[in-house]
Design a protein around this nucleic acid. Structure first.
Lengths: 255, 255
DNA sequence: AGGCACTCGTGCACACGTTCACAAAGCTGG
DNA sequence: CCAGCTTTGTGAACGTGTGCACGAGTGCCT
C-alpha cells in the first residue's frame, strides 16, 4: 500500500468544509463526472479555488496537475478522513416536537448516522414509535449507549432540561454531543459539543438587516447584482452563500 | 443625549456571540441580577473574559470599572445593535416535515420573528394550518413578502427545490435567507445567507470521533476531567461548549 | 480623605484562516 | 521529443480573531 495516511492535523475551518465538498463530489459522481478541477469544485461550493486546493492538500496530494482530482478517489479520501467509512449510531434525547422531527426525518440513517434510540423522561411518550424507533425511558439511556456502542448524542429537549440531558449522555459514555437547545452546555473538556441554534442564526440575520437599514440610508431597495433569474439561464451563479458552517460574505465564483 | 451610537463595524465573530450574551443577560435579568462582571458572563457563556470585554466594547463603553455591567442596560444595547428592537417577520418556504416543525415550534414569534406566512408548491398542503398560520401557495409568496414587509426567508424545502425557493424569495424582495437544505444556494452577493445543516454538523463530530480513535490508540475510555456530576454539586463547570456559532474547544471557565 | 480591592477597556503579540501568485508537474499535439 | 497549455500544491503576505497583561477608573472601608 503506497498511500500512507498523512495523519496531519486538519484545521477546523477545513474540517467544516470537507462535508460540503463531499456532498458536491458525491453528486458529481452520480452524474458520472470522473474528474473535477479545484476551480469547478470551488464554483459549486461557493468558495475560493485556492482554498479548495489548500483544504484538499491536507488530505494528501491526491490531485493530478493539469487534470484535476479524480472524483471517486477524492470521495473515498474525504469519507475516510471524516470517519464516514462506517456508521455512527446516534441517540436522541427528547421526543418532543424537535425530537420527533429529527427521528422522522430519516436523513440521519441514509447519511451514516442511524438512530440507535430515542429517550424521554415523560412516561406518556415512552412506547410511541418515531421513524421506526420506539421511544424508551431516559433511564435506559446508558444501556442503549453501551449496547449499541453509541458515541454521538443529540440533545433535543426543552431548554431547561438540556444540561441534565447532556450530563446523562456524558455519564452514559457519549463523547460527542449535538445540541439543539439554546444553552451553553457545561461538560468535560474532552467532550466535543456542537450547537445548532435557530434563534442565534435569526438574530445574526437581524443584525445584518438592521445594519442594511442604518449604515447607508439604503442604497436602493434591491441593491442586487446580476438579478438571479436574469442573465442567461441559471448557469453562472451571481454569487453564492459559500461554505463555512455558517457565515456568508463569500466571494462569488467569478462568472 | 450623551450616548451617541458608535456605528463602528462589529466583527462577525462578535456578532455571532452577541445573541448568546443576550440570552444569558436576559436570564440574569429575570433573576433580578442587576449587575454582572465580564468574568461571570464569560463563565456562563463558556468563553474568555477578555473576549467578553472586547466584544462588549464594540457596542461602546457601557461597563463600570470596579463594578461590571448593568444587566438591563446591556440587554438594551445588545438588542438595539442586533436590530431586535422591533419584530422581523419571516416567511417559511416548504410545509413539509421541517416546515411544520418550525411553524409549530412557536419559539419564533416569542423571540421576535413571527411567522408571517408559510408557502408550499403542493396544492394538497395549501389551506392546512400550522402553528396558527395557514399554508398558502408559493405563487402568493411575493404578495406575502410585500404586504407583511418580510425581509427574512426560511428555506425548508427538500434539497432539490431549495435553489428555486431561494430564487423566488429573492425575487419577492427578501434580503436574508436561513437555509436548512444541504445545498449551497446561489444568490446575489447582496443577499445574506446562513445555513443550518445537520449532516455537516454530524460529520464534523464524526471527524473528531474518528480522530479520537486513531490519533492516540485511545487514552482511556472516558478521558474525562472532573466528571460532571462529580465534585460538589453542579456548581463549577468542568468545561463548556463555548459560544462560537458552532465550534467547541473553548477553555473552561476556571473553576 | 486616603488606600485598597476590583473590574473595565485596550494595546500588543500570537495563532489561525484566507488569498495571491508562481513554480512544478502532467497532458496533448505535432 | 519538445513546446505550450492546464491545473495542482504551496510559500508568503495579509487579514481576522484570540488572549494576555496592564493602565485607568470606580466603589468601599477605615
Amino acid at each position: 500500500m503506497p498511500t500512507e495516511r498523512p495523519r496531519r492535523r486538519i484545521p477546523e475551518a477545513t474540517v467544516a468544509r470537507l462535508p460540503v465538498y463531499l456532498r458536491i463530489l458525491s453528486e458529481q459522481a452520480e452524474e458520472e463526472v470522473e474528474s473535477i478541477s479545484s476551480d469547478r469544485l470551488a464554483e459549486l461550493g461557493g468558495v475560493n479555488a485556492a482554498k479548495v486546493r489548500k483544504d484538499l492538500s491536507y488530505l494528501g496530494s491526491y490531485g493530478t496537475r493539469g487534470v484535476g482530482y479524480e472524483v471517486a478517489y477524492l470521495v473515498y479520501q474525504i469519507r475516510r478522513e471524516l470517519g464516514l467509512t462506517h456508521d455512527w449510531p446516534v441517540v436522541i434525547v427528547g421526543a418532543g416536537n424537535l425530537g420527533q422531527a429529527l427521528a422522522g426525518y430519516g436523513g440521519f440513517g441514509e447519511r451514516g448516522f442511524p438512530v440507535a434510540g430515542i429517550v424521554d423522561v415523560d412516561p406518556a411518550k415512552v412506547g410511541t414509535v418515531l421513524g421506526g424507533v420506539r421511544v424508551r425511558h431516559i433511564d435506559e439511556l446508558s444501556q442503549i449507549v453501551q449496547s449499541k456502542r453509541v458515541n454521538i448524542g443529540v440533545v433535543a429537549t426543552p431548554t431547561a432540561a438540556a444540561q441534565d440531558a447532556a450530563e446523562r449522555l456524558v455519564r452514559a459514555g457519549v463523547t460527542s454531543i449535538l445540541n439543539f437547545a439554546p444553552v451553553v452546555l457545561s461538560v468535560p473538556r474532552s467532550i466535543e459539543v456542537r450547537k445548532v441554534d435557530l434563534a442565534v442564526e435569526l438574530q445574526i440575520l437581524s443584525y445584518h438587516e438592521q445594519r442594511r437599514a442604518t449604515t447607508s440610508t439604503l442604497r436602493s431597495v434591491s441593491g442586487g447584482v446580476s438579478g438571479i433569474g436574469g442573465g442567461g439561464g441559471v448557469s453562472g451563479p451571481g454569487g453564492t452563500s459559500g461554505i463555512g458552517g455558517t457565515a456568508a460574505t463569500t466571494r462569488p465564483a467569478s462568472a
